[in-house]
């Protein structure tokens, strides 16, 4: 068994120590610090990216809530505006209605007055004619001239009953 030949031990141990020390120096002094710093840099980069992403997310949330607030406000004011407009319209309708009613009322009043006047005129005209007719009728029937004032009062009384 070649493993048990002590003649080769010195050489094996010697080269083992040499190669192991060289490998240790390469890894310890050159390779590992670089990998370590690369990993650290990457971790830092990832961490800072995450922090920034979180900041941006918070900002976006703020903007969103502000937008929603604005939207609610705008809706509210729009409703108010609408309400006001509706009220104004109602008020205007009312005033116009009132004005129209008033105008109609005055119009009908004057019309009534005119009608009344016309009727009185007509009655006055009619009473004159009725007096003449009555006098002539009396002259023909009883062949006397009646007292004009008595005729007038009789006619007036008769007409007054009609009106």
């Amino acid at each position: 068994m070649p493993q048990l030949d002590p003649a080769t031990f010195a050489s094996q141990v010697f080269w083992l120590v040499v190669s192991f020390v060289v490998l240790t120096l390469i890894l310890w002094r050159v390779a590992l610090p670089r990998i370590s710093s690369t990993l650290e840099n990457r971790q830092q980069r990832i961490d800072s990216d995450i922090t920034r992403a979180e900041e941006i997310a918070t900002e976006a949330e703020g903007v969103l809530s502000a937008y929603e607030e604005e939207l609610t406000k705008a809706r509210f004011s729009a409703q108010e505006e609408l309400h006001k407009a509706a009220e104004e319209a109602i008020a205007e309708t009312e005033t116009r209605n009132n004005a129209l009613t008033e105008k109609l009322a005055t119009n009908s009043d004057t019309a009534h007055q005119r009608i009344d006047g016309a009727r009185k005129d007509a009655i006055a005209n009619v009473s004159g004619m009725v007096e003449d007719i009555a006098r002539q009728a009396v002259e023909r029937l009883v062949e006397t001239t009646p007292d004009s004032s008595a005729v007038a009062s009789a006619v007036n009384a008769a007409l007054g009953e009609r009106t």
Partner: peptide
Amino acid sequence: MALTVVIGGGLVALAASRG
């Protein structure tokens, strides 16, 4: 052993070099 140093050390050193 020498090959181990060259390959093992070289592999890790090369892997580390770009970073």
